[in-house]
């Protein structure tokens, strides 16, 4: 395969990773909207759309393997492909977690704990993914460090949200509720805690993307674990 095509393949890989990130972020936005609006149709769209994300992942994995096998990349090219190979795994996992939000939305049947702002947490995670992908696109080391710093704030907010939920549950008087009402409340609490956990994990995946991008840009593995 001519070397000219190799450069085109590298450009295509980068653009396809960015495209996959756009698809995944859209799924995450839809999952958050489904949760907020209790929109079953939107929730199903997110759940069924995960197949597209999985296929994108497999296609990009194939592109990376082909480049490694056929072009024997080195130096910055190798780092870009290796980083992309890892980043698409994080994007695929974010897609799975967005699907979880859709499933939580389908199961939820009442508002609980309005003081926990899921949309705010979701917005923070979306911003982190978006900025991590901008850092990847623009090869910005500074952007990578900034994502890692923001994850500490997200973790603190998620921990605070979980504390609120657990504390309220402990303090809720359930004597006057029916068994069915208690069961529903527990399921909603459980779903809310899982939602907070999933959003926190999405933040971790955004940090992973930033870490691999930093490796790609500067051969620096400081942010990897």
């Amino acid at each position: 395969m001519p070397r000219k095509d190799y450069q085109t393949q590298l450009t295509d890989l980068r653009e396809n990773v960015l495209y996959m990130s756009e698809v995944v972020m859209e799924r995450l936005r839809m999952g958050l909207d489904a949760l907020e609006q209790k929109d079953d149709e939107l929730a199903w769209e997110v759940i069924e759309g995960d197949e597209e994300v999985n296929q994108l992942y497999l296609d990009l994995e194939g592109e990376c393997i082909d480049l490694l096998a056929l072009q024997q990349p080195v130096a910055s090219d190798l780092r870009m492909i290796a980083a992309s190979f890892k980043i698409i795994t994080d994007l695929e996992r974010i897609g799975d977690l967005a699907t979880n939000l859709g499933e939580y939305s389908l199961d939820a049947d009442q508002d609980v704990f309005p003081e926990v702002d899921i949309q705010e947490l979701g917005s923070l995670t979306l911003d982190m993914i978006e900025d991590a992908m901008v850092a990847y696109d623009e090869e910005s080391a500074d952007g990578c460090y900034e994502i890692a710093d923001r994850d500490d704030d997200l973790d603190a907010l998620c921990e605070r949200a979980s504390e609120i939920v657990v504390r309220d549950l402990i303090e809720t008087e359930l004597e006057n509720n029916t068994e069915q009402e208690v069961e529903t409340l527990l399921q909603d609490v459980s779903r809310l805690l899982l939602t907070v956990r999933d959003l926190e994990r999405i933040g971790d995946h955004a940090v992973n993307i930033a870490a691999r991008t930093l490796y790609m840009v500067e051969n620096d593995d400081e942010l990897i674990y």
Partner: peptide, 17 residues
């Protein structure tokens, strides 16, 4: 050399540019 060369000219050579 093959993961992170110091010189851009070396990078360009080994990556085929």
């Amino acid at each position: 050399i093959f993961e992170n060369p110091e010189h851009q000219r070396v990078e360009d050579y080994i990556t085929g540019k």
